[in-house]
């Protein structure tokens, strides 16, 4: 179990929404860099070696692509490096490309961490309070995913011995899969009706309903939420005053280094590395504890 993931869903949701929003909203190289580094550090604690390697293979080419294509679509900037079809390929556009690439990578990595931490049961818990019926549909849908996967595999095996998928060509594969899919649809609809009847038989819709959950709101959650609220307000104020502003075109503006900006950087850095620190602290503590067993 991940230490950060043990927090209450509300705390987690507030954190992720804040990080995603600030990552996209604060157009400042320092905060973008901090956000990227924080998300990388966090994701490192969540993934194994193989997944890290796969991520590297995905993010490096993607970033390179963004850096290189930005000057092709954006011709702003004061320093032309060369001309393509009469359009300037500018240094500023490259810098801006680097910035966008970093920001997109950060958003994708925060989203990845969110997907890993904010599992479907947490989502349903929050969702179920606001939109109970929609949450019910979603929970049924989630429950059917593994069922249908298994049934599709069984259908495919059975039909292979009955002459489908016989040559291995794409066309054959496609025809076979379509037939299997149609059979899966029939099976699922049939099952769905039965499941619905069982839900009714077990009292769904009979009256007022409790939304039971195994999540608990602890003191730590209150502390975290208070910190988030304070940090979020301060960052918003700083952003609203325009101190964090940084422009790329036509030429990069000087990096804001006034006291407000610097403290905003520190604050944001703290936020961005919070999950990483929580995870590391927990694993250090656990190592100590385990040595005592």
């Amino acid at each position: 179990m991940k230490a950060f993931g043990k927090l209450h869903p509300v705390t987690l949701l507030v954190y992720f929404v804040m990080m995603l929003a600030f990552s996209m909203f604060l157009r400042n190289p320092v905060t973008a860099g901090l956000s990227l580094l924080g998300s990388i550090a966090f994701c490192c604690t969540l993934t194994d070696k193989r997944e890290k390697l796969e991520d590297l293979k995905f993010y490096l080419p993607l970033s390179a692509l963004i850096v290189l294509t930005n000057p092709l679509v954006s011709h702003n900037g004061r320093t032309p490096l060369f001309f393509v079809n009469g359009n300037a390929f500018t240094l500023e556009a490259i810098w801006y490309g680097v910035f966008i690439a970093g920001m997109i990578a950060a958003v994708l990595l925060w989203s990845k961490a969110y997907s890993k931490i904010f599992t479907s049961d947490k989502f349903l818990y929050l969702f179920g309070r606001i939109l109970p019926k929609t949450a019910l549909i979603l929970s049924v849908a989630l429950r059917y995913v593994p069922l249908m996967k298994a049934q599709a595999a069984r259908l495919k095996d059975a039909q292979k011995t009955l002459g489908l998928f016989s040559t291995g060509s794409i066309a054959d594969n496609l025809i076979g899969t379509v037939k299997v899919y149609a059979a899966l649809v029939a099976w699922s609809l049939e099952n769905a009706v039965e499941t619905g009847r069982h839900m009714k038989a077990r009292g769904w819709n009979a009256g007022r309903r409790t939304a039971f959950s195994t999540f608990r709101f602890r003191f730590t959650d209150a502390v975290f939420l208070a910190v988030f609220a304070a940090a979020g307000t301060l960052l918003l104020l700083a952003a609203a005053k325009g101190t964090l502003y940084f422009g790329f075109y036509p030429a990069p503006t000087p990096l804001p280094t006034d006291p407000i900006s610097v403290s905003a950087y520190a604050l944001f850095g703290g936020l961005a590395f919070l999950p990483f620190f929580t995870e590391t602290e927990e694993s250090i503590r656990w190592t100590c504890l385990r040595s005592k067993i």
Binding site: L136, I137, M148, A152, S188, A192, G196, N205
Partner: peptide, 17 residues
């Protein structure tokens, strides 16, 4: 009806599967 809700849930899963 509960059946309607479950059917929509299953159609959703079908599209994802």
């Amino acid at each position: 009806t509960v059946t309607y809700l479950v059917l929509i849930g299953v159609l959703t899963t079908l599209s994802v599967i």
